[in-house]
Design a binder for these strands. Structure first.
Length: 553
RNA sequence: GCGCUUGUAGCUCAAUUGGAUAGAGCGCUUCCCUCCGAAGGAAGAGGUUGUAGGUUCAAAUCCUGUCAAGCGCACCA
């Protein structure tokens, strides 16, 4: 719908450039509305209303203008459009025709190859509730982008190299009393558990390594343990229906291939490095105010060098890379982008979605989640506690930049009045009606006389359903997945409204003697089509979000 | 101290990226099942968008100051 209006503007007034067409809050301000007159007024030095009038006349002269019932230019200069009812009925037919493909983009020239990396939690413990938000967001966003015609690769990056793996090994050894405990070690029940399980194995390893160097032993053990954690992580992701296609390993895919070395070499060639105490530093003011180490005196590469190498690789493989990060990593964004630029890559090809940390509340108190301290609450617990659909929906309702509170008791306790159930209930109601109708006998002269749908409830619902393709398109462009979640509640609300007012089955069943005329039956049959369309659109949206479609509740 | 993010109804959050009368859910006050599932619907109360200025036809949104919260500022990753 919106597309059609924009098309018309392109023909009428190409000089206006990109046109914003929005849906006003109130019906009296049009089905669609635009503010182009303001911009035009500025360049032509006339009043916005005047500019609007001129545009209106031009549009009315076009043959395409017959889709409009009315065009109004109002103070201070908005142009409001009302579309003819037939146009809306046409879109409703489109929903019924395309079904699960409705809303799928048919534009093929915008197609790009997108790498979407999310979760990527270090395999130094099980997934926690803190990983849930990014996991659900990444999964849903990938669905939306694919639905919009892009080729999406869902990636999980595994930091299986570097210090934290060694620390993990040390933590287990310390637990077994084979080395002194340090403050930075991982603690908590899960480490104790691992230590118990690995006791025999560690003894054996200890004997096999002839000159038992603690470093080598802890690294080896750390790798072993992290590998088993990764198995746990994959299981948890599966429980949450979060899908990944590529699992990339830092040690094997980045470090062993000497990619960080190339990065440092390139910096060196440009004279950006300086040496202190055997370590190589990026000079101050290059990626940050301060100097920054890229290669340690030990010869190891630092996080930034490895990360640059990793992103360089991703950008080479795809047209666009999207990273979903927790806000606790935000400090890395600017240096990473700057570094990519210095390495000759276009930093605009990397889009980082920063997601604020969630505060989990239980019994009015915040639950602190920390893997090091060991007092975390697992993703699996969250799923068990409130259910996968509830968790997913509640996270996806909110914009990533909100510092959201997640009250576990509330999510569980209020579960019956939860927005997820509100939406799922609407979907179930659709199914129930369709099911029931299929089992009754009735005769109508015309099943699909959609023109009979002319009450406010009918038309509002039709218009809302028609917006679905626009919602998908916008979301694929700005990644604001919560728009779709909100949209499902909007559709559900309009449907519940419609449902309350118009009864279909009694009308179909009724006999002429009861006042049930031919026209009423045809109307009921048309309404059934609208119910089917609602089921399609709600179903499509929930599928994109990854929320299940129940048949009964 | 410096940087990033955020302050919107009692609570949790929206607001089509600068648009028209700032909207939902929960909670609160009233109604509505002889009727496709009441896990629903209708109505109402509730706001100086933290605060003080500025920019313009138009500001919750942009700029500056200020207050508050979260998170960062390693030869950790």
């Amino acid at each position: 719908m919106r597309e059609k209006i924009i098309e018309i503007f392109k023909k009428t007034a190409p000089e206006t450039g990109d046109i914003e067409v929005s849906v006003p809050a109130n019906d009296s301000l049009g089905h669609y509305s635009t503010n182009v007159a303001f911009r035009l007024a500025k360049s032509q030095k006339i009043s916005p209303v005047e500019a609007g009038q001129k545009l209106k006349e031009k549009i009315m002269a076009l043959p395409d203008a017959d889709i409009f019932k009315k065009i109004d230019v109002v103070n201070p200069g908005f142009i409001n459009f009302w579309l003819k009812d037939e146009v809306w009925y046409g879109e409703l037919k489109e929903v019924l025709k395309r079904k699960s493909a409705y809303g799928k983009s048919r534009i093929s020239n915008h197609k790009s190859n997108i790498n979407l990396e999310f979760v990527s939690a270090n395999p130094t413990g099980p997934l926690t509730m803190a990983n849930a938000r990014g996991g659900f967001l990444g999964d849903a966003l990938a669905n939306v982008l694919e639905f919009s015609g892009h080729k999406v690769t869902r990636e999980y990056y595994i930091n299986d190299a570097g210090n934290q793996i060694k620390l993990l090994g040390e933590s287990v050894l310390a637990e077994l009393g084979l080395m002194p405990r340090k403050a930075e070690h991982y603690q908590g029940e899960y480490v104790k558990e691992i230590a118990k399980q690995r006791k025999q194995q560690v003894k054996k390893m200890d004997r096999e390594i002839l000159s038992p160097e603690l470093d080598a032993l802890s690294s080896l053990l750390g790798h072993e343990v992290s590998r088993s954690f990764l198995g746990e992580i994959r299981k948890s992701l599966k429980n949450a229906s979060i899908k990944h296609e590529i699992w990339r390993w830092e040690a094997q895919d980045i470090r062993r291939k000497k990619l960080p070395e190339k990065v440092v070499k390139k910096f060196e060639e440009q004279g950006l490095l300086i040496e202190h105490d055997g370590a190589l530093w990026l000079k101050s003011g290059i990626v940050q105010e301060k100097e920054r180490v890229v290669r340690k005196s030990s010869g190891d590469y630092t996080y930034i060098a490895v990360d640059l190498a990793y992103h360089l690789l991703k950008l080479r493989e795809s047209d666009l890379a999207i990273d979903i990060w927790g806000a606790d990593h935000h400090g890395n964004a600017a240096p990473l982008k700057k570094g990519l630029e210095l390495l000759g890559e276009n930093p605009g090809k990397l889009h980082i979605i920063l997601m604020q940390l969630v505060r989990f509340i239980k019994d009015g108190k915040e639950i602190k989640i920390s893997k090091r301290a060991g007092n975390f609450v697992l993703l699996d617990d969250l799923l068990k506690e409130v259910g996968a659909d509830v968790a997913r929906f509640l996270f996806l309702m909110h914009a990533p930049e909100t510092h959201m509170d997640f009250d576990l008791a509330l999510a569980k306790e209020r579960s019956m009045k939860n927005p997820v159930y509100y939406v799922q209930y609407a979907f179930v109601r659709c199914g129930a009606i369709i099911q029931k109708v299929s089992s009754i006998k009735y005769q109508v002269s015309s099943k699909k006389n959609l023109k009979l749908l002319n009450t406010t409830e009918d038309l509002m619902l039709i218009r809302e359903l028609s917006r679905f393709p626009e919602m998908v398109e916008d979301t694929a462009r700005d990644y604001q997945v919560h728009r779709l979640t909100r949209y499902t509640t909007d559709v559900a609300k309009l449907f519940h409204n419609f449902y309350e007012k118009e009864r279909i089955i009694p009308a179909l069943r009724s006999f002429k003697s009861e006042g049930g005329g031919e026209k009423d039956k045809n109307l009921a049959a048309a309404r059934l089509e609208l119910v089917k369309a609602t089921q399609i659109v709600l179903g499509n949206t929930l599928c994109l979000l990854g929320v299940t479609l129940p048949t009964k509740m």
